[in-house]
Write a protein that binds this DNA or RNA. Structure first.
Length: 572
RNA sequence: GGCGGUAUAGCUCAGUUGGUUAGAGCAGCGGAAUCAUAAUCCGCGUGUCCGGGGUUCAAGUCCCUGUACCGCCA
């Protein structure tokens, strides 16, 4: 039994995430966590909301609420939706937790002690009307290059020229529209990542089998231009982790907070601490997952994220860990994903384009989405969601291949033998051949799941379902019943057991249907089929079962067209 | 502009360190069966592997170059 620590990139608090966000981190992480638990490993699966930063403050203002209240509400909303998708987090934390405050301050202190923090004075735009410094992209004005009047302080969206806020003509606050702006001198802390460049480079190069997407992005940032740059880790904001050096005040940093990207990954650790507190456990309970000198030396740590998050997880966060000079657990494997597009374009949170998590659950059960998203996960390149593809995949795979198999077996048995596993007869060559096939396919499936080859695992699982239909078609118990009822009984006894095996194997992908299948079979035996022959004998003759409701209703053309129309525009 | 990714059957995609007649699912066509959510099973693919060069006994698979689309640029 191994110990596996799994984290999913933490979603930003500012609103409900879309399906592209889900498939890029939380969902594959959940697949892996569920699978590893089923295989008997000790799993710690942590996720959280990423709550700090300017967008959260502005969203709270727009909602007319204090930012703390806004975040608490949105955390509850996101938590409920995660439950709806059956995301099996051991803990769904918050980056605004007291644990994260103290750990973030702790790491900053250690980094400063070891010389990896530098104080730099810089000039930033301050808005008197808003009473705050404005990040570059919250300053608007006329582009000096093309004359576009809604250019942002970081870049003109019209002519794509990179800008400095001070370049803008007639600059104004994007928050209030005020032109009462001034440039002020302010001091910030920088993480000297450049000092750790060689260590990071060696570490990345020593990794075997990481996705190309992960290493290529990391190397680009390490070697592009002047190499890895230092990054500012503080901001002039109210909402965030106050800048402290460990537990001490940090002279000159009064009223400032750590920048969101610095405290967010630390929340993986803090979230585990939150888990311990919620469970009423002491610090040793979470430290054994994170301190290699306190029991974490045998932990395998796997992170899941979309490609936009790769730089932080391959460089910035490891720099924080390494720079601390302490034996905190570094990630062992980074599984990264490309983007999921929506019907010819991008999913867009700001434009409300695509299907959002709450909307998805309002029209179909979680299993439909889980199956489609995972079996089409954007592993090797960007993938695309279309309603036609979704409808045909779900109908064919779930309703026809799996759902119908359960139906035909249970209903046939009920009509010929009643709702109990029939007795009599014996397996023959055909059954031996099926067991050999299922054994080989199950081993292949395990291999793909171990390797986090999500699409391939889904394809293999599907082929395992298909093997059941192939067997039934060949064995044809409906024919055998007429001439040799004992043989038909043996075949159906196997087929009923097959349903239980399928429930177990399918659970990481479609947990609700899996539970329904086990319930219908009247068993709580969810042991993994290490030995297929034994696994297909778990339900003995005489065991009662029930014919379940239709597991997966098909998506009709009318539904598809309606949803296609409903989600084509923008969200309210 | 710089960097990165992707371009394979009508559609969605696999193709390991270069090596037998380039594969899968879906859709389509033909057939079997009738237990089942008209579900299942079997059979059927002459694809300039984006274009053009090159390396090699051998390239979808490596190198150069062109084109298209996508993303990132702290």
């Amino acid at each position: 039994m191994a110990r596996i620590l799994i984290t999913s990139a933490i979603p930003y608090i500012n609103g409900i995430k879309h399906l592209g966000n889900l498939v890029g981190s939380q969902l594959p992480a959940d697949l892996y966590a569920r699978y590893m638990r089923q295989r008997g490993h000790e799993v710690m699966f942590i996720c959280a909301t990423d709550e700090h930063g300017t967008p959260a403050e502005l969203a709270a203002t727009k909602a007319g609420k204090p930012v703390e209240e806004f975040c608490a509400e949105m955390h509850a909303v996101q938590s409920e939706i995660a439950d709806g998708f059956r995301l099996s987090f051991d803990h769904f934390g918050r980056s605004s937790s007291v644990q994260n405050h103290s750990l973030t301050q702790y790491f900053a202190g250690k980094l400063a002690d070891n010389g990896f923090i530098q104080e730099i004075s810089e000039k930033q735009v301050y808005s008197n009307a808003d009473g705050r410094f404005l990040p570059d992209r919250y300053i608007e004005g006329t582009c000096p290059n093309c004359g576009y009047d809604k250019a942002r302080g970081d870049q003109c969206e019209n002519c794509t020229k990179q800008l400095d806020p001070t370049d803008l003509i007639d600059p104004r606050s994007a928050v209030s529209g005020s032109t009462d702006l001034e440039v002020r001198e302010t001091k910030h802390l920088y993480l000297r990542q450049s000092q750790l460049k060689d260590r990071l480079d060696d570490w990345i190069n020593s990794q075997e089998g990481w996705p190309v997407l992960t290493t290529s992005i990391a190397k680009k940032w390490l070697h592009d231009g002047d190499g890895l740059r230092d990054r500012g880790i503080t901001r002039d904001l109210n909402w965030g982790v106050p800048v402290k050096r460990g537990t001490d005040e940090w002279p000159g940093m009064e009223g400032k907070v750590f920048y969101v990207w610095f405290d967010a990954p630390i929340e993986y650790i803090a979230g585990t601490a939150e888990w311990a507190e919620a469970k009423g456990l002491d610090d040793t309970a979470w430290r054994r997952w994170w301190r290699t000198d306190e029991g974490a030396d045998d932990v395998r740590y796997v992170q899941f994220m979309g490609k936009d998050n790769v730089p932080f997880h391959t460089l910035s966060f490891p720099a924080t860990i390494m720079g601390s000079g302490e034996p905190w657990k570094l990630v062992d494997y980074i599984k990264s994903f490309n983007y999921l597009n929506y019907d010819g374009g991008q999913f867009s949170t700001s434009q409300g384009r695509g299907v959002f998590m709450d909307q998805a659950l309002s029209i179909l059960p979680a299993d439909y989405w889980r199956w489609w998203l995972l079996s089409h996960a954007p592993e090797n390149s960007d993938a695309e969601f279309t309603w036609e593809n979704f409808q045909s995949s779900v109908n064919k795979d779930l309703a026809d291949v799996l759902g119908n198999l359960v139906s035909r077996v249970t209903k046939f048995c009920r009509s010929k033998f009643g709702e109990v596993v029939p007795e009599g007869g014996a397996w023959a060559e055909r059954e031996a051949a099926l067991i050999a096939t299922l054994t080989a396919k199950t081993r292949a499936y395990e291999g793909f799941m171990d390797a986090m080859e999500v699409r391939k695992a889904a394809a293999e699982l599907r082929s395992i379902w298909v093997a059941g239909n192939e067997y039934l078609q060949e064995a044809a118990p409906w024919s055998a019943f007429k001439t040799d009822p004992e043989l038909a009984a043996a075949q159906i006894r196997l087929a009923l057991n097959l349903i239980r095996v399928y429930a177990v194997l399918s659970r990481p992908f479609i947990p609700d249907a899996s539970a329904a299948m086990l319930a219908a079979m009247g068993t709580e035996d969810d042991s993994w089929p290490d030995d297929m022959t034994a696994a297909l004998s778990v339900l003995p003759a005489g065991h009662a079962f029930a014919v379940p409701e239709v597991l997966f209703a098909k998506i009709t053309d009318e539904q598809r067209e309606e949803w296609q129309e409903r989600f084509s525009g923008t969200r309210d």
